[in-house]
């Protein structure tokens, strides 16, 4: 069974533990500028929104890569960049509609979320469960439960 990163922005406090966990997992350093998940803060509304690659099936980045440096991990469903193959041409960064694959100056390669091979460090580090790693077919389950509760538990009109 594949799992997906599932983000509930309402629960995010903006602590950036996820960003540090990501950089530590991939580079062995606490460095939010190297994180593949970013938390955006919208000051005027108080919203904090974590955002990263959704591992889309179409995978424009994978399609666009001229050297086939991006491949599908068939177990996790992640689209994974091979540092050995990537030439740093950045075409994938242009083709991705969501901006979630980015160039890294230090390495001359691109980076994106690889789901940490099936145990995403960001989800483990999140103190509020704003980021969870759940059944890929049922990312809507929590929302469905919420509405089921709202509708099913209200007083009947008759």
């Amino acid at each position: 069974m594949q799992k997906s990163l599932h983000i509930n922005a309402d629960k995010c406090t903006g602590c950036l533990q996820c960003e540090m966990a990501c950089s530590y997992e991939h580079y062995g350093v606490f460095n939010t500028s190297k994180s593949r998940i970013k938390v955006f803060e919208f000051h005027d509304t108080g919203k904090k929104v974590p955002y990263t690659c959704t591992q889309c099936s179409e995978a424009w980045c994978l399609q666009a890569c001229p050297v086939d440096a991006i491949s599908l991990d068939i177990i996790t469903g992640a689209k994974v960049v091979s540092d050995d193959t990537c030439v740093g041409c950045k075409v994938c960064t242009i083709s991705c509609p969501f901006g979630t694959i980015n160039y890294v100056q230090d390495t001359g390669k691109v980076q994106k979320c690889d789901l940490c091979g099936g145990d995403p460090a960001c989800a483990t580090a999140c103190p509020t469960q704003a980021i969870t790693y759940v059944d890929a077919d049922w990312t809507g389950l929590d929302k469905m439960r919420e509405w089921a509760d709202k509708l099913g538990n209200q007083n009947s009109s008759n």
Binding site: T13, G14, C15, L16, Q17, M20, T45, G46, P127
Partner: peptide, 19 residues
């Protein structure tokens, strides 16, 4: 009160955001 907010690395998140 609109929401709470954490500072960097904080897993308490006592900060208040209001309108």
């Amino acid at each position: 009160l609109v929401t709470n907010q954490a500072c960097f690395a904080c897993t308490i998140a006592c900060g208040r955001i209001s309108k």
